[in-house]
Amino acid sequence: MSKSKVAFSDIELINGLRSGNNELISVLYKKYYTVVLKFIVNNSGSQEAAQDIYQETIIVLYENVQKPEFELNCQLQTYIYSVAKRLWLKHLKKNNKTFLLKEEEEDDLIDVSEEMDDYLNKEVEFEKMNRALTELGEPCTTLIKDFYVQKLSMDEIAEKFGYTNADNAKNQKYKCLQRLKKYFFEIVPIDNNNSERYESNRFI
């Protein structure tokens, strides 16, 4: 294994992230993990929490670089650190843990509230979608994803699911979609605390 390390610039890493270049995403991911890990662990978080928060952070960045108006006005590390910190504060607040963060790097923060709000609003919507899909059950969920996400044709879907022809598949897709629509628009968003409780209930 060659150990030769090529240093990539922030711009290169961001372009790699934007275009979905797996190698560059991996480089970026590895590069800043320890910074976030250190911050979380120093502020009463576990290693697992650090991993979760860091992954959320990279997702925030990933979704933001897709926007045409995205512009990085600081060092990438500062951006990542700022987002991670906001996410961690949010997490602590949600769990009613109030204590002072060690704020030694105060001056190295930027305002990421807009990005954060956008991310968190979407998170609520996605959670709703997930719950609607769970309600929907199988085979509907797979069928809907195959058509609307994987963009399979009705013929391919008919074949895969064992429908006699594309029209039958289309009928089934129609029924599934009607149900999904009903569930998705009827679901009231709940905060994550409740959803965790809902999940754990099932373990009694």
Binding site: I25, Q55, E125, F126, N130, F185
Partner: peptide, 22 residues
Amino acid sequence: LIATLNKAEKRAAFKHKLKAIH
């Protein structure tokens, strides 16, 4: 509905990728 489904899937797929990298 369709856009939310696609974006949710995209986020989930990316998250999956990050987990693998990690």
